[in-house]
Simulated assay, not measured.
Amino acid sequence: MTDSRASTAFWPKQIIPPTPENYKELAKDGAERLAAVSLQQIPAIPAGAVIHDNGCGYGSATAVIMASAAPEVSATYQITGTDISGGAVEVYCDRADSSGWPAKGLVMDSDKLKFQDEIFTHTIGNAMIFVGPRNNGIDAVKEMYRTLKPGGTLILNCFAYVPVLEPIREASRVTRTGAILPAWTSFEEWTDPAFIANIVEAGGFKKESIKVQQREMFVNIGDFDRHTELVWSMRGMPSTGWSREDEERWDEALEINCAILQ
């Protein structure tokens, strides 16, 4: 990192480093399960589809798309995965090669897609609209609308309920002077189905063509104690940055998270 703020930031000695690999461990198979339950809400993707996996990450949505169709059908797909993270795209491309996906990966900002108009039959933004794009995702939706063929299908999803959010807030209130809350609070407004519908409409889609559905999904978190440490390390940092107080009261914060999550 070249950011001077990052180089001088305080990091508690107990923290699990916020690396892409550790974020993936935190997410487990959540992205795959979210993509799967979303794809179940639309007709099967037909042969010859031209698909955009927007905010592709390591390829969770692409993997589910490929697995959801017969091999002779999925082999005819043309998939382009894009992500603003060069590291993610590199992993995506390696995975596409090793898995034999008909896919390519490109580094690209979802708010400023470098594609011509009306080229995709399907676009999926899997677990991306609420964490990355600016302007509440409206600019990104405008770009997805622009690049979809007339009559094309857009899938956007988000989490309506995130069980770890209240535990990290409570741990923050109890263990931090001034009860400084974590910087990670991005999910609350997305719990209202009308919120995401309004964003899609503001992005250019006709109101009558938009359908919002809520479905249950579950993620196997594995070792509970390890998961709790990952949650606090990746999601617990306060808006003011980590402090020595966080280091000194780290175990107390973990105990609060464990007690509420259980």
Rank of each mutant, 00 (worst) to 15 (best):
M1V: 13
S7P: 00
F10C: 10
I16C: 05
I16V: 14
P20R: 03
N22K: 09
K28L: 01
G30H: 11
E32L: 10
R33I: 05
A36C: 02
S38W: 02
S38E: 04
Q40I: 01
H52P: 01
N54R: 05
G55A: 11
C56T: 13
T62N: 06
A63D: 10
I65L: 15
A69E: 01
A69L: 06
P71L: 06
P71G: 02
I79M: 13
T82R: 05
T82C: 08
S85M: 10
Y92T: 09
C93T: 14
A96Q: 12
D97P: 00
S98E: 15
S98Q: 15
G100K: 02
W101P: 11
K104C: 08
G105A: 12
G105M: 13
S110E: 13
S110M: 14
D111C: 13
D111P: 00
F115R: 05
F115N: 01
E118D: 11
E118Y: 00
H122E: 07
T123D: 11
I124H: 08
M128W: 10
M128Y: 09
V131T: 13
G132V: 13
N135H: 09
I138E: 13
K142N: 10
M144I: 03
M144Q: 12
Y145S: 04
T147K: 01
P150K: 12
G151Q: 06
T153F: 11
L156A: 07
Y161W: 11
P167Q: 05
P167M: 09
R169M: 15
A171R: 06
A171D: 02
V174F: 02
R176D: 03
T177P: 00
A179D: 05
I180V: 15
L181Q: 14
E189N: 08
D192N: 03
F195M: 03
I196Y: 02
E201A: 15
E201V: 13
G203W: 02
K206Y: 10
K206E: 14
K207A: 15
E208T: 07
K211E: 14
Q213M: 10
R215C: 09
F218R: 09
F218Y: 05
F218L: 02
V219F: 03
D223L: 04
F224I: 03
D225C: 00
H227K: 03
E229S: 11
L230G: 03
S233I: 06
M234Q: 12
R235W: 10
M237P: 00
R244A: 11
R244Y: 08
E247D: 15
E248R: 12
E248V: 01
R249D: 03
R249Y: 07
W250I: 08
E252C: 02
E252S: 08
L254M: 10
L254I: 13
C258G: 02
A259C: 01
L261E: 01
